[in-house]
Design a protein around this nucleic acid. Structure first.
Lengths: 267, 267
DNA sequence: GTCTAATGGCCTAATCGTTAGACCTTTCAC
DNA sequence: GTGAAAGGTCTAACGATTAGGCCATTAGAC
């Protein structure tokens, strides 16, 4: 059987860092081949907007050199991305693996089912994000130096200028990385980045509309202002408010999706 | 050359979750064999006190069955633990791999050098711990239910009853796990556990004395009381104080060690 | 229109980690 | 002493990975 969980969206990279419910030292090991791990990395990179839709990944031979692995392995990994619908591959000169937009070959249906199945997991993920991000924002305000401010303000400008949804997401990621870096603690940078990745992979369609974006632009402006002023309290509060909003939007969306799914399928 | 970093203490399992400075998707991959991963897991389990010194690990054939891997692979992993000095292996009936006490075949000298080399890393680790633990304590106080309280109080009793240093560490771990569980967020449980593991592996000799233990017993008592009362503020404050103390003790110890090392070797 | 360079697609031989299983050796409890 | 429970060792087979070469397709340069 196994109609779902074949190459589903949240499947590939879920077994990742922070993985809730972890490695109790004597649990069966899940052997992961190099190709799988590379596929996970690339998926994560796409999810985090390091490659935006329409963009071409490096050539297979270049990827192989960069990652330090043979071309055959890279091809295996790309094959997975391709059959999961994240990229499409074209041949010939200037061919390559191009990031799909819409994320959607592996349609929303699968996403919805996966999400509904792991709902408790995602509740905890959102909860965790709402705890960490205000902490990070407050700390960034307290610790930022001149270089941090420059990076943050540049990222904010880029966010304001972002034209479409995809550019917006990439800029959002960059901004949050810049803020996290301002804490001068690499653990926080790492944790926040991984949380964003999991959120992005889990909820492959984060709610987006002109209204939401307008709101986000405003929030980000306020957040950056607080960080610039060095007002930790304010930065923390703004961050908390911001993520409460987006989280409840997500929760609404999922609840709606869940109702549909429960209606159409048994179990 | 390469006199250090051969099988040094912090070496094996450092490339782990939370790993500060992580996977930028196109960085060279570090292929890790199953044996390496299992060795890391076992090392972590020992570091976290899941196996205490003198205790015997399960028989190779049993480990193989438990982890879901062949005996040859288990032997490879145990070989690493053994040559790193974490366990010693005895043959014959009732033989097996026994956890070393003192942690010390891989003597303090190596530890000191490794620590001094990665000092910025450990500063960030301690910083991170001082941020996360108060958050966890406060949240535990706010969210704990009856079951959590039972578990926490049992762990506290066990800690009070712990006879020697090793038992004390195992009980400490259990108590902190119980508190983290009370947050009802598996990400927090996971993060705090991993931080404790890294601290334990990095500073293989956490300061210990009757005075320190007495202080810890007191702190833990107060912390648990605050959690029981549901007083998040107090729990958070106590936790902050507690970890500030232990962190500065660690920093002192390392500074002292560093001075020695700098005196004896020319970088 | 033809050529050419850059790209993906495909094949092969060799290496290495892993498996399953058998058998040997050591040690201790009875 | 004997037997059972452990670690120690060997082998044949498999699968993932590598290094390298060659083919097929395509876009741009001329």
């Amino acid at each position: 059987m196994k109609p779902l969980r074949e190459a589903s969206v949240a499947d590939t990279p879920a077994a990742n860092l922070l993985a809730a419910g972890r490695t109790d030292a004597l649990e069966p090991m899940q052997l992961r081949t190099a190709a799988e791990q590379i596929a996970d990395r690339l998926t994560a990179a796409i999810a985090l907007g390091e490659f935006i839709p329409g963009q071409r990944l490096p050539a297979e031979r270049d990827l192989a050199a960069m990652v330090g692995v043979s071309r055959a392995t890279i091809r295996e990994a790309l094959g997975r991305l391709s059959s999961a619908g994240y990229v499409t591959v074209k041949r010939g000169r200037h061919g390559g693996a191009f990031v799909e937009s819409g994320w959607g070959a592996t349609s929303a249906e699968v996403v919805r089912r996966t999400l509904a199945e792991n709902w408790e997991h995602y509740e905890q993920l959102l909860d965790f994000r709402q705890l960490m991000e205000p902490l990070i924002a407050g700390l960034a305000a307290a610790r930022r130096d001149e270089d941090d401010l420059l990076a943050i303000q540049a990222a904010l400008e880029a966010y304001r200028a972002a034209a479409d949804r995809e550019a917006s997401r990439a800029a959002d990621e960059a901004l949050h990385v810049a803020v996290a870096r301002a804490t001068h603690n690499s653990y926080l940078v790492s944790v926040s980045s991984q949380v964003r990745m999991e959120v992005s992979l889990g909820f492959s369609a984060e709610p987006y509309s002109e209204a939401i974006r307008a709101r986000a632009v405003e929030d980000h402006g306020e957040l950056v202002a607080a960080v610039v002023k060095g007002d930790a309290e304010a930065a923390s509060a703004i961050s908390r408010r911001h993520f409460m909003l987006t989280a409840s939007a997500l929760e609404d969306a999922v609840r709606r999706a869940r109702r549909e799914t429960d209606g159409s399928t048994a179990r």
